[in-house]
């Protein structure tokens, strides 16, 4: 074996091209791989993730939240939480990071064709949903009506606000909510699961995709069951502490499944057959 053989631990070097301050704690980074050829050939499916490296600090996993149909950069939304994300937030335009991507599985975009779609997102959980949402807007004719329920703690905590008008005019129903009343807020108020019950999109020919904090997912799943969604009509993404991202290091298992390679996308049907260790 030579040192030049493919090494899945070796990140591609990439440059930060654009930074968007989404919320007080979330920044979106648009990056391009330094190797132009690799950037041009880069392909992925909505839902797949990448490991971002700040060399000297470490790596962390983020969903690629630009859609595969828009290829001039790779976008990652990063919420400041641990050491890697704190450091990422300190970086500026032109700074070098490492990218290992694409990793993991993806949303079943083929199976979703011809269906109505419901997105239910909370906080940073909107990041993976955005990938799929934009992909669907770019392939609008393949999908039925699209409803998005997106909630955050306060108006300031909603990411991608600058795109909301475009989403709405592209023919989807966007329902925004915040946890508590806020001056000037004209949309809904209440936790995401409550709003889900209010909006109550019919399960007829529909796939629901939900992503958010574990506690929100728990109640959204219950809410969808209440609305009589079948297990296979519900899709979610899971989070686990990851290291290698390639199914080797062992820590992200839920029973026999590894979130890094068998996920992050799981249907509720799959979840129900996994060990209850979320």
């Amino acid at each position: 074996m030579t040192a030049s053989a493919h090494n899945p631990y070796r990140p591609e070097l990439a440059t930060i091209q654009e930074i968007i301050q989404e919320t007080p704690t979330i920044r979106t980074f648009r990056v391009v791989l330094n190797d132009e050829e690799k950037m041009r050939r880069f392909s992925f499916q909505p839902g797949q993730v990448g490991q971002l490296s700040v060399f000297g600090v470490g790596e962390s996993t983020f969903v690629i939240n630009s859609p595969p149909t828009r290829k001039d950069y790779l976008q990652f939304s990063v919420m400041r939480a641990g050491e890697v994300t704190q450091r990422l937030h300190q970086l500026s335009l032109g700074d070098q990071i490492g990218v290992r991507a694409p990793l993991g599985n993806s949303f079943p975009i083929e199976d979703m064709k011809g269906h109505n779609i419901l997105f239910v997102g909370g906080g940073i959980g909107m990041a993976p949903l955005r990938t799929l949402l934009l992909y669907m807007l770019d392939n609008r004719q393949d999908y039925g009506n699209i409803t998005v329920i997106y909630g955050a703690r306060s108006p300031e905590d909603l990411s991608y606000g600058y795109e909301f008008d475009k989403w709405r005019t592209s023919g989807m129903d966007l329902v925004l909510t915040i946890d508590r009343e806020s001056p000037g807020w004209k949309e809904r108020v209440g936790f995401v699961p409550t709003i889900l019950a209010e909006v109550a999109p019919t399960p007829f020919n529909r796939i629901a995709i939900t992503c958010g904090p574990p506690i929100m997912i728990k109640f959204v799943l219950a809410g969808l069951k209440e609305l009589e969604y079948e297990d296979h009509q519900i899709i979610t993404t899971l989070e686990r502490r990851m290291k290698c991202g390639i199914g080797i290091c062992g820590r992200c298992n839920i029973g026999t499944k590894y979130v890094c390679v068998d996920g992050p996308v799981f249907s509720y049907e799959q979840l129900r057959h996994m060990v209850p260790e979320l």
């Binding site: 060399f55 470490g58 790596e59 062992g250």
Partner: peptide, 24 residues
Amino acid sequence: CYCFTITDEMKELEGERLRSWDSC
């Protein structure tokens, strides 16, 4: 038991990415 962790170590401008045994 093969589970491991990956951590970065840095001194000034140079550093290493280490793989080390971890324990579940």
